[in-house]
Computed example of a mutant assay.
Amino acid sequence: MAEGLRERKKRETRQRISDIATGLFLEHGFVTVTIAEVADAADVSVNTVYNYFPTKEDLFLDRSKGVVDRLSRWVRGRDVGESAAAAVLRELRDEVEAVSPRVGLMPGYDRFMRVIHDAPPLRSRLWSIQQEVQENLETTLREETGAAPGDPLPALIAGQINWIHQTVMGSIGREMVAGREPDEVSRETLALLDDMEELLSDKVLNYAVRDHS
């Protein structure tokens, strides 16, 4: 019981620090705000902040672990008879059609993207995250297909699937920063997904089809 209470308190503290830091970054900019200011606003020590977030970038991009695993999670959860690319396309369409905040379709996302745009360290971290997404997906495709270590196909397919995801997220980010309404961006992004699917070869669209439950 006591262990459970301690873990819950840690999660609550971590979330509170993250929320306060995000608010400060959105208001004053990532480069301007210091860890000491975050700690003061959260009423914790600087060491406590670093215990939960090893770097300042982690404070702003604290949900990156979920993003890194997103494509792999969708591929692993694909239906019987569904390929890896088809699963990602389906999941993306569902998120976009639902006008989901998880893909940036929400009021205020423009402020989030501007903070990243104005901070070179965040842009660098975002690029690193995108590389992790693709590498993670390649590993998943190798596991799901039983590909040999030297087989280049999982890496090539992962690149194609990651291109879909990055293009969609990039397009949504640009349109939201331009002041567009989420519903409007959603409709246009669904059309963009159709266009991208038409560009994919049969080899990509039929790779890693799940043949059993």
Results as ranks from 00 to 15, higher is better:
148 A>K: 14
28 H>P: 01
62 D>W: 10
197 E>S: 11
31 V>W: 03
64 S>P: 04
173 G>S: 15
47 N>M: 13
18 S>R: 05
183 D>V: 11
170 G>F: 01
73 R>V: 08
67 V>T: 14
36 A>V: 04
145 T>Y: 05
90 R>M: 05
36 A>T: 10
198 E>D: 15
154 P>M: 01
8 R>D: 14
32 T>A: 12
32 T>D: 08
136 N>M: 03
206 N>H: 15
92 L>P: 06
116 I>W: 02
99 V>T: 12
145 T>P: 09
77 G>R: 15
165 H>E: 10
199 L>E: 15
166 Q>C: 10
104 G>I: 07
67 V>C: 00
98 A>N: 04
132 E>K: 12
196 M>K: 09
53 F>C: 03
27 E>S: 13
87 A>Y: 02
190 L>Y: 07
122 L>G: 04
38 V>Q: 06
195 D>L: 13
190 L>P: 05
89 L>D: 02
59 L>N: 00
46 V>R: 14
100 S>F: 04
20 I>E: 01
91 E>W: 12
147 A>D: 12
49 V>K: 06
211 D>V: 14
155 A>I: 00
101 P>S: 04
183 D>I: 03
172 I>L: 09
87 A>P: 04
7 E>D: 14
32 T>L: 02
70 R>C: 02
142 R>T: 00
160 Q>K: 11
151 D>T: 04
70 R>Q: 12
111 R>D: 10
63 R>N: 11
139 T>A: 14
135 E>P: 00
125 R>K: 11
189 T>Y: 07
202 D>C: 00
108 G>Q: 09
38 V>A: 04
140 T>I: 01
5 L>D: 12
32 T>C: 05
109 Y>Q: 10
64 S>A: 14
101 P>F: 04
129 I>C: 09
32 T>H: 13
47 N>I: 06
171 S>D: 15
93 R>S: 13
155 A>G: 13
205 L>N: 11
140 T>M: 05
212 H>R: 14
150 G>I: 02
156 L>V: 08
27 E>H: 11
188 E>H: 10
166 Q>L: 14
82 E>K: 09
177 V>M: 15
3 E>D: 15
149 P>S: 13
6 R>P: 06
59 L>G: 03
61 L>P: 00
150 G>Y: 12
1 M>E: 08
104 G>H: 01
49 V>Y: 01
194 D>Y: 07
34 T>K: 02
195 D>R: 13
175 E>V: 11
143 E>I: 05
50 Y>M: 06
123 R>W: 05
123 R>S: 06
86 A>N: 08
183 D>H: 09
155 A>Y: 02
104 G>F: 04
73 R>L: 11
107 P>F: 15
194 D>R: 10
213 S>A: 15
141 L>E: 01
90 R>I: 02
